[in-house]
Design a protein around this nucleic acid. Structure first.
Lengths: 327, 327
DNA sequence: ATGAAAGCGCTAACAG
DNA sequence: CTGTTAGCGCTTTCAT
């Protein structure tokens, strides 16, 4: 591996000149620049980012914390982050935490250690205390998940309004018995969506029917199945169900079919997130779509601005109800 | 940000001693170690990996190249890589290339620049020339995809045998008209699976029926739909279809339903990969399962061994035919 | 336009 | 057991 020294020696110039050629060609005379470039190709020289970073103390690497890459919800967001980051000369480091504090620690240390310049956290289960602590000294943005009162800047949608819109749509379709498969209340978005659900029912003078509300710990296919099984086991079954996530909805769908019922004839179903598969299921899923690509893009830009010391504001983006075959 | 110097000064020792406490506590007397640790917590010191890496010229970072994180096939593999890597004191850098040479370049440069110690490539469309070139100077492993004659070590399954097994199973079920949705022939695995398909048919004295074989450019849901539409448009429809990937199979499933046909009664369907969704579709998909977690684990271990200069051998793992509702 | 020299934060001989 | 010292590869004043 050739170093800047080797190039300098071969070109008969100083390392400073080589560095200039690599970074600011215009500061060097055409003639020497040519000599240097020749040496560079000859030696197959590639500057060591390590040396450069140590000197400039920036890595141009962005950390993206996600609980699981298996969750398709994050796919589009990440694409948005990536595009914006690369456009700004940054690369991203995808970190799957599995919501495991140990893994989180390893990755958070990467920014402490100056291996990365900042973090975009999308993990709703992340250790908030540690994250806030870290945010004191390092640029950190939350995407999708957030704290209302928090010190950490965020990009998100209005979860309460989104749930309100979905449930209101079902009500307008004539449904009066509406079930709700929701995430654990430890998550702010779950509490927000619950508020939206309650508010929508309230406007139609409907009261809460506890049996129709099921909380799940994880947001997976099986959890959706189990939750739906519980709802179907109630005496007075709902005619529509709003699920907090498409993964849950797809699980619910499977369970409904298993009971010999049809969607949307027997039970209407609304999901959340507009993951790729929600358009592939049988029937396709009505769902609340978040502007995921844009969320990613916005958070990357916010983070980079923060890294550069520019002022930033929280961003709340608009959602959209996608009406498909399941309602 | 405190540096090792600050800690040394505060503890009244040399930087070497601080370094020892951080890396090899046992080389330092209990008393001084305590003093140093006190200073470390006091100053909230975190060693800079940049400095360390520059010195040791290793980053303990592994690059994982995938075409798309959206493809669930890679999920389990990555989990395997991650577990093995973390266990060995390495972290992984997930790089989505989108099979775009420019993106690939950026990521490949990361190892040239000594930001990463090695690469696990899972991109079948990766620029082979560049990869082979890079492999001359840097540790690189291919996972799932590979070159038979190649210089790059790999972990994979026997694609030909896997396809042979799947098609033979359909033949044993009594099917004689078997369609095949295959990836583009530029991919070695596609050619291998074609051989397996031909071989199985040959053993039952069946000849190739060109109309029943459709090649797709991408391995997505829509591609599966389109391919199946073509097959269903043939005069003499097959009674079974083998798809090169579960994503294709799920698309095919949708198309079959659209035509008012039933699986497996009218058409039996076999997928490939055993992605999570293959167990969620309606009906669930018979599929060829690759030992994805183990593939990931093996490739990570191989790469780390290679980085450490240990000798390594190619690995071919066993597949398994998972019989479910679609056949 | 170019070179000399200092130093980013760390580790690893070597010496004591 | 501990300190001294010499860099790892690079950028960036400060001179010239």
């Amino acid at each position: 591996m050739a170093t800047i020294q080797d190039v300098a020696r071969m070109a008969g110039v100083s390392t400073a000149t080589v560095s200039r050629v690599v970074n600011n060609r215009q500061l060097v005379s055409e003639k020497t620049a040519l000599k240097v470039e020749q040496a560079i190709t000859e030696l197959n020289y590639e500057p060591s980012v390590l040396g450069r970073n140590l000197r400039t103390s920036e890595s141009r690497l962005l950390l993206v914390l996600i609980p699981s890459i298996a969750n398709p919800f994050y796919t589009e967001i990440i694409r948005g982050i990536e595009d914006a980051a690369i456009d700004q000369g940054y690369n991203i480091l995808l970190c799957e935490t599995g919501s495991d504090p140990k893994r989180e620690d390893i990755y958070m240390n990467l920014v402490r250690n100056r291996m990365a310049d900042g973090i975009i956290s999308m993990d709703p289960a992340v250790n908030k205390v540690r994250l806030v602590e870290l945010a004191k000294n390092h640029p950190i943005i939350q995407c999708s998940e957030y704290d209302k009162d928090g010190v950490i800047s965020y990009v998100t949608i209005d979860s309460e309004l989104a749930a309100y819109d979905a449930v209101t749509y079902l009500l307008e379709q004539g449904h009066r018995k509406i079930g709700f498969i929701n995430s654990d209340n430890q998550y702010l978005y779950a509490r927000d969506r619950y508020s939206g659900y309650v508010k929508a029912l309230g406007e139609f003078d409907l009261s809460i029917h506890k049996d129709w509300i099921v909380h799940v710990e994880r947001v997976g296919f099986e959890d959706g199945q189990l939750a739906m099984a519980k709802i179907l086991a109630t005496e007075d079954k709902p005619t529509a169900v709003f699920a907090d996530s498409d993964m849950l909805a797809v699980g619910a769908l499977k369970e409904i079919h298993k009971h010999g019922l049809t969607v949307p004839q027997d039970i209407a179903l609304v999901g959340f997130d507009n993951i790729e598969f929600s358009a592939m299921s049988q029937p396709t899923l009505t769902t609340v779509s978040q502007p995921m690509y844009q969320m990613g893009k916005e958070s990357a830009m916010m983070l980079i601005h923060k890294i550069k010391g520019m002022p930033i504001d929280n961003v709340v983006l608009a959602h959209e109800l996608l009406i498909r075959e399941s309602t």
